[in-house]
Computed example of a mutant assay.
Amino acid sequence: MDLQQIGLRHPAAELVRDIQNNRTGIPRRTFVAEGLFENNIVLETGVVVETFLWCPEAAYSDEAKKRAAQLVARARRSYQISTKTLERLAERPNPDGLISIAQLPDWGPDTIGFGDDALVLVTDALEIPGNLGTLIRTLDACGADCLVMTNRRTRMTHPKVLRSSQGMSIKVPSFEFEKAEEAIAWLNAERFTVYIADTDKSTNYRRCDYRGRTALVVGSERYGVSQPWYDANFKRIGIPMLGSADSLNVSVSASVLLYEARAQKDRW
C-alpha cells in the first residue's frame, strides 16, 4: 500500500490525540479504534471509517496486514505513520499498527424495533466512563436491546467507554434524551414496565415480575436517580445489602438486575 506519510502535526493525528484526551470540539459520535480487536469490530459492524492510520513496522501478524488493506479500502482517507508517531498516538500497548477514526451508528428511539419482551437499561446522569463501558459490555452479554441515557455526563465516544466495553459500545444500540421527562414519556408510550434501582423503600429484586417490556433505571454514582423518575411513581427495586456498605457499584448493581430480568424472560 502506497500511502502518504504523516506526522504528529497532521490534522488526522491531532484529531486522534484530541479524542484520546477527551477534548471539546470533537466531531459528533467520532471515536478512535486501536488494534486488531477493535478494528475487527469496526469492519464487522460496517461503521463509517473517516481516517485510517497504518504503521506497517508495528504489525505483529499477517491478520493485521490483511485488516489494514480492508481498512484502506473502507476509509475515506488513509495515511502511513512511523512507529514513533504510533507510540505517541496509541493508548494501548502493541496496537498492531492499526488506528482508525470512525463514527458510531446514529441510533435513535425510532430506529430500533422492540419486541414484546424487550429489555432496556436507562442510565441517569452516570458520570464515570469506565462504569458506562462496563454496563454496555453487560448489556451485550445478557442480550439486552439497548441503552437509554438521560442527563448524560460522559460521551459515548470517550476512550474509556470503548475500552471498558470491550468494543461493545460500537455494537450495542444507545441513544439519549436530554431530559428525564422525555425518556419517561417515551417509555410509557412504548408500554415498558419501569423499575428504579434504589435500596430505600424498595422491593427485593428477586420478587419482581420482569416479563414483558422491561426498563431498569440506574443513577449517578454520587447522587443516584434524579427526582423526575420518582415523580413518575415507578416501582423501586433493590439488592439486599448484608454487610456494612449501603450500596454496590452502579455497574455491579445493574449487572445483577439485568441478569435477573433475563433469567425470568428466558425461564432459566
Rank of each mutant, 00 (worst) to 15 (best):
Pro56Glu: 10
Leu126Tyr: 00
Pro109Ile: 06
Val252Thr: 15
Asn21Cys: 08
Leu242Ser: 10
Asp2Ser: 13
Gly7Cys: 14
Leu242Asn: 06
Asp231Phe: 02
Leu89Phe: 00
Phe192Ser: 12
Asn40Leu: 14
Thr123His: 10
Phe192Ile: 10
Val252Trp: 02
Leu132Gln: 07
Thr134Trp: 01
Leu162Ala: 05
Asp231His: 13
Asp140Ala: 13
Ser61Thr: 09
Leu248Thr: 03
Asn188Ala: 15
Lys201Gly: 15
Tyr205Leu: 15
Glu87Met: 02
Ala102Thr: 02
Thr134Val: 01
Leu187Gln: 07
Ala68Tyr: 01
Ala185Cys: 09
Ala215Phe: 03
Pro129Phe: 02
Ala58Leu: 06
Ala144Asn: 10
Asp209Ser: 11
Leu248His: 03
Lys179Ser: 09
Glu44Met: 02
Leu121Gln: 11
Leu43Arg: 11
Phe114Lys: 12
Ile239Cys: 07
Ile99Glu: 10
Ile237Leu: 13
Asp145Met: 01
Phe114His: 14
Gly108Leu: 08
Arg206Tyr: 07
Pro93Gln: 12
Gln20Tyr: 03
Phe52Val: 08
Ala125Val: 08
Cys208Gln: 14
Gln227Pro: 05
Ile81Asn: 06
Asp140Ile: 00
Arg222Val: 11
Leu126Trp: 04
Thr138Glu: 04
Leu248Met: 11
Pro93Met: 08
Ser220Ile: 03
Thr134Phe: 01
Val47Lys: 05
Phe177Asn: 13
Val225Lys: 05
Gly25Lys: 07
Arg206Met: 15
Thr111Arg: 13
